[in-house]
Structures are given as C-alpha cells and as structure tokens.
C-alpha cells in the first residue's frame, strides 16, 4: 500500500470516486486479532456459540470499531499528507460476518473554498461483495490548493471560515 500523489482542491470534482479500500475475505482470526489489540471482550466478536445461540446472531460479528478505522484509512489516504480528514460521521447499520470481503468507498458530494484551503464533503461507506451497505456516513476533508501550503498540523478549525464550521 502506498500514498497517492498529493491531491489539490482544484483537481477534485463533485462526483469523483475515492479509490476503493478492500479488506478481506475476513476470517475469525482477523476478528480475534482486532478484539485482542483493543482489549474488547464483547463475546459477539469471537465466541461463536454465544453469538449464535445466546444473541441469535448469524455468526460472530465484525467489530464496528474495526470498520470505523477502515473508513478513516480511506479518508487519510485520500487527504494525503498535505490534507486533513477533519470531521467524520458514520452509522453501524448492518452486520458483517467472517467470509465477507469489505470495500470502503467514498464519493465527493460537495466542494467549496474554505479560506486558504479547499473543503470537500464526502459520502462514505462500507459494502460487502453483495453490495450491501453496512456503515454509511459522511466526512469533511480539507485539501491544499494548488501552490498553497499544506493544511496545518495540529489542525485548528479556526483556519476554516466560521460560516463553514
């Protein structure tokens, strides 16, 4: 995996698709590894008898917290080192289970100049190979303009005009 060339605001158009980020097929080992890494002991993510027999789920579930990080990866990659994924909203609307291949996707829904930078409003989500959406959301990403400075880090919302915050 490698960073894309730095994207500038002038090169982006409404309707542009972000490059998909594909993960999987996911196995129970992937789910167990995530639960262990964050010390999340919720049984529905690793205990199949509990998930199926007690909680009446179809299988153990891919953690929502794992899916959120996949979407943040999608946005960080698109923003590049000179941009900044500022605001993100997402909902866990549907379950994902082992065996699925998950694709994080995004689309540019709006663009506006924001002071010295460009502000992109994005639609985002995660679909499985059947096309079922599980994690719809939206994001606001600051991009540099051509010839302009990178978005400052630490990022402070003060660089965005008040009307756009």
């Amino acid at each position: 995996m490698s960073e894309e060339p730095q994207r500038v605001f002038e090169d982006v158009s409404v309707g542009d698709a972000l490059a998909d980020l594909v993960k999987g097929p996911l196995s129970p080992a992937h789910l167990m590894r995530w639960s262990s890494a964050i010390e999340n002991w919720h049984r529905i993510h690793y205990d199949r008898p509990y998930a199926i027999e007690h909680d009446r789920l179809p299988d153990i579930l891919v953690s929502g917290s794992w899916k959120q990080h996949v979407l943040l990866q999608l946005l960080s990659r698109w923003a590049g080192k000179g941009g900044w994924a500022w605001q993100v909203r997402l909902q866990f609307r549907a379950m994902n289970v082992p065996g699925e291949v998950l694709t994080a996707w995004g689309r540019v829904a709006g663009l506006q100049r924001a002071g010295a930078f460009g502000l992109a409003d994005l639609e985002i989500g995660i679909r499985n190979e059947a096309g079922a959406e599980s994690t719809p959301g939206s994001a606001r990403v600051l991009l540099p303009v051509r010839g302009g400075p990178p978005v400052p880090r630490p990022f402070t919302p003060d660089v965005v005009p008040r009307a756009l915050r």
Partner: peptide
C-alpha cells in the same frame, strides 16, 4: 449495540 460515531480530528 454500537450505533456509530461523529468525530472531529485535530492531530
């Protein structure tokens, strides 16, 4: 159930 998140990132 985890219903979702809204975030603002600074650094």
């Amino acid at each position: 159930l985890n219903g979702g998140y809204a975030y603002s990132f600074f650094r």
